[in-house]
Design a protein around this nucleic acid. Sequence first.
DNA 1: GAGTTTCCTCAGAGTCTTCTGTGGGTCGGG
DNA 2: CCCGACCCACAGAAGACTCTGAGGAAACTC
Lengths: 241, 241
Amino acid sequence: MGAVSDRPQPRVLVVDDEEHITELVAMGLGFNGFEVERAASGRAALSAIESRRPDLVVLDVMLPDLDGFEVARRLRQAEGAGSRVPIIFLTARDTTQDKVEGLRLGSDDYVTKPFSIEELIERVKAVLRRSKGVGPGDHRLSYADLELDEETRDVWRSGKLIELTVTEYKLLHYLLSNARRVLTREQILAHVWDYTFTGNASVLETYISYLRHKVDAFDPPLIHTVRGVGYTLRLPPDRSS
Amino acid sequence: MGAVSDRPQPRVLVVDDEEHITELVAMGLGFNGFEVERAASGRAALSAIESRRPDLVVLDVMLPDLDGFEVARRLRQAEGAGSRVPIIFLTARDTTQDKVEGLRLGSDDYVTKPFSIEELIERVKAVLRRSKGVGPGDHRLSYADLELDEETRDVWRSGKLIELTVTEYKLLHYLLSNARRVLTREQILAHVWDYTFTGNASVLETYISYLRHKVDAFDPPLIHTVRGVGYTLRLPPDRSS
DNA sequence: GAGTTTCCTCAGAGTCTTCTGTGGGTCGGG
DNA sequence: CCCGACCCACAGAAGACTCTGAGGAAACTC
C-alpha cells in the first residue's frame, strides 16, 4: 500500500491487441481521471507492468502471444504476494464457465465482450476501491434529491428507493455523472450501449421514457430533452431571477 | 503529451479531395487560431502526417486512392501507441451504420456531411481538449453580461437563463466567439448554416430577430446591424465622449 | 422448461423548428 | 425631403424530432 494507493490519478494498463478496443477503453478511463498506458501483447504487458507498476490492469484474455491467463500466472509467480496487481479480464461471452469462475477467486474481476464503457469504468472503480480500501463517500453520486450508490446500485429519489434494470441504471449513471452537462444522443449511445450496438437509435428514447416514469415521477423533473441535441440531467431552469 | 500539447497554435491537417471543402475548413479553422495544412488524397495525407506531425487530422472518408478508414488503419499500424494523432472523420450522412459505429471506438469523432463550420470547429476543439486534458473553464464564452457555457449549452444574459434552439445557439455562439468583430452576412451563413444551404438568405434576418427577442430584450442591446454588411455583437458605442 | 423480466423495434401522434414570403418600416444618398 | 435599397417582424406550412405504448425476442429464474 502506501505510495500506490495515495496516487491521486490511478494508473491503469490496458492490454488488447485490437487497437480500437484499447483506444475505447483508454478514452473512457482517461475521461474519468485515470492515467492510462497501453500494451498490445502479453509480453509487452509483462514488461510494462514491471516498468510502470500500474494500479490495475485491464487484460484481454485473447492475445497473440501469451493469453491473458498465462500473463496473470506469470505475474503471480514473479511477484511477492504483497505487491499483486489487480486484474480485470476481458473475455468473450462464450468463455468456458470454469475459467471464468477461477477469476472470481482473486480480487480480480472480469468483463465480457462486448461491453459498454460505463460498465467497464464501474468495474475498474470497484476493483480499485476494493484493493485500496477506499472509504465510503467515493461511490456515491448525487444531484439534487437524486442519489446513487455505485456499490449497492441503489438509487433514491427524495429518499425513496427506486428499482432499475441494468440498462436503466447505466443510463442514469451516465447522466448523473455528467449532471448539468448536455450529452448528445451519440455520446449516450456510445457510453451506455455496448460498442457493437448498431440497432435503432430510438432505444435511447425508450429508455429515457422508462427512466422518466421511475425516476422523474417526482417534482421537479430532472431529465430534460435538449431538442436536436440530446439530454441533460439537471434542476429545471430557474426563471425567477 | 509535452511539446505537442503545449504548442500555442494547434496544427490541423485537413484531408479532402474537394478543394472547396478543404478551403472552407481551412478558413474556418484558420480564423479560430489553428494552423492548417491540407492534403487531397490518402497517400498525401499519410506523408503529410509523417512530416508535419499535426495535432489533429480532419479526414474525409471518401478519397480517390485510400479511403479514410484505410488511412487511419495504416496510421495506427505505423505509429507507436503513444504518438497517435486524433482523427475527425467526415462521412456522408448515409454511410452504413456499422462503419460509423466503428468510429465511436476511438477517441476520435466524426461529422456528417454536410456540416456547418461552427459544428466542425466545436468538434475539433472538443477532441483537442480531450486529448490534451485541458481543464474546465475553457468552455465558457462571455462578453459584457452575456455568458455561454459550451458544455451545458446554458446561455445567460444579466444572470438570467435563456433557452435557445439549436440554430439560435449556433448563431449566438458564432457571434459571441467573434464579439466586436463585424461579420458579413455571407460569413454568418457559411458558418452557421451547412455549406449546401442555398435557400433564402433571409433566414438569417429571421434568426437575428429571434435572438434579439430572447437575448437582447435587455439593456443595452448587444446585437447590432451593420447596414449593407452584416452584424456584430458588442456594447453600443459610447456616445458621451 | 415454463414463467417472468428485460431489451429492443416499430409506428402513430403530438410537438417544436426551420424556412419562406409578405408587408411595412428604416436608413442614407442625392 | 424623397426614393430606393435594405432590413425587420410576423405568421403559416412543411418538415424534423420526440414520446409513448404495444409486442416480439431473448435472457434469466425457479
